[in-house]
Amino acid sequence: MNLLAALLAALLVLSPFSRVAQGADLRVLTSFLPMYLFTRNVVGDAPGVTVEMMLPASLGCPHDYSLSPGDMRKIAEADLFIANGFGMEDFLGAPIRRANPKIRVVETASSVIPLRAGGDPHGHPGGGRNEVNPHTWVSPRNAILQVRAIEKALSDVSPGNGPVFRRNADTYVGRLDALAREFNETARHFRNRNIVTFHNVFDYLAREIGLTIVGRIEETPGQEPSAGEMRELVRTIRETTAAAVFAEPQYPERLAETVAREAGVPVRMLDPVSTGSAAPTTYEDVMRRNLQTLTEALGTR
């Protein structure tokens, strides 16, 4: 029994949560804006919990992001790291472990049924890359799953705050469920369901509400299309009578405007909530603006 007690004591010393169990504040670090918004809503006013966002809210999706010395310090001081996962944060794994071997990393997208980056928005395999599409949060139903994953992780680490986390998560999930129902009800009446997006960030939303993404301007984020690829995209837009080309606020509109002008369709803006305000209602506010934009572009019957 003495040996067992010694082993248990050693595990507590090594555990990243031993100080939390002893009454210290729980320090939660989130990777980027949507993970911060979800976590902040679950934590709410829970005592002894701090939530910080690692990447600036103006940066956007952390594709190919490299950790800075300041990031490493934040990771070293945190107990829990809330990430999206599915490859969104390339720095997960060894870089984080080097900064803080004791930190617990939660990849919230693991609760979502994945889409392939090279497939169509309904999950069918297609050409191009075959990695998992990491943009899970741009779907209210997926957001609910990710919020529940955050709630569970927080309750595991700080069980004393479990009732607070559950209450806050229930409230937030109720709001997200209302948002999802708004999307589904409105989408039932869309006159045109064919769209072109800038890249594959809206594939999960398309799956959720029954849109067909007939083309993307950038099949690989950050890699501009060739002249031949743009001509092919224009041809596809005309053949499928796509309603519009949707740009994103995180990228210049030049390519979207060029393709739309050649195809004779309008350009509209959809926001994947990867930049912007850190206010608690930002996700819902932005997604409702997206719904209004889709309604105006696709028409209703």
Rank of each mutant, 00 (worst) to 15 (best):
M1K: 14
N2T: 14
N2H: 15
A5L: 15
A6Q: 13
L7I: 14
L7G: 08
A9K: 12
L11H: 04
L12H: 10
L14M: 12
L14E: 13
P16A: 12
V20Q: 15
A21H: 09
Q22C: 02
A24D: 15
T30W: 06
T30A: 07
S31T: 15
L33P: 02
L33V: 10
L37F: 09
D45K: 10
E52Q: 15
M54C: 03
L59D: 06
D64R: 12
S66N: 10
L67S: 07
L67G: 06
S68R: 13
G70A: 14
D71R: 00
K74Y: 04
A78P: 06
D79R: 00
N84G: 06
F86N: 05
M88D: 00
D90Y: 09
D90N: 14
L92C: 01
L92R: 07
A94F: 03
I96Q: 03
P101W: 11
R104K: 15
T108W: 03
S110W: 03
S110F: 07
P125Q: 03
P125H: 04
V132C: 04
H135I: 11
W137S: 08
P140R: 09
A143C: 01
A149V: 06
A149P: 00
L154A: 10
S155C: 13
R166C: 01
R166N: 04
R167I: 01
A169F: 02
D170L: 02
V173M: 05
V173P: 02
R175Q: 14
R175D: 11
A178V: 07
L179R: 01
A180I: 04
E182L: 05
E182T: 00
N184D: 12
T186W: 04
A187D: 09
V196M: 07
V196Q: 07
F198P: 06
H199D: 06
H199P: 15
N200P: 00
L205H: 05
R207K: 13
G210N: 13
G210V: 12
T212M: 05
R216I: 00
I217S: 02
P221W: 06
G222S: 03
Q223G: 01
E232N: 08
A244R: 02
E253M: 05
E257A: 12
R261D: 14
A263H: 01
M269C: 09
L270M: 11
P272Q: 00
T275I: 12
A278M: 10
P280Y: 03
T281C: 08
Y283W: 08
M287S: 05
M287W: 05
T295F: 06
T295I: 11
A297Q: 08
R301E: 15
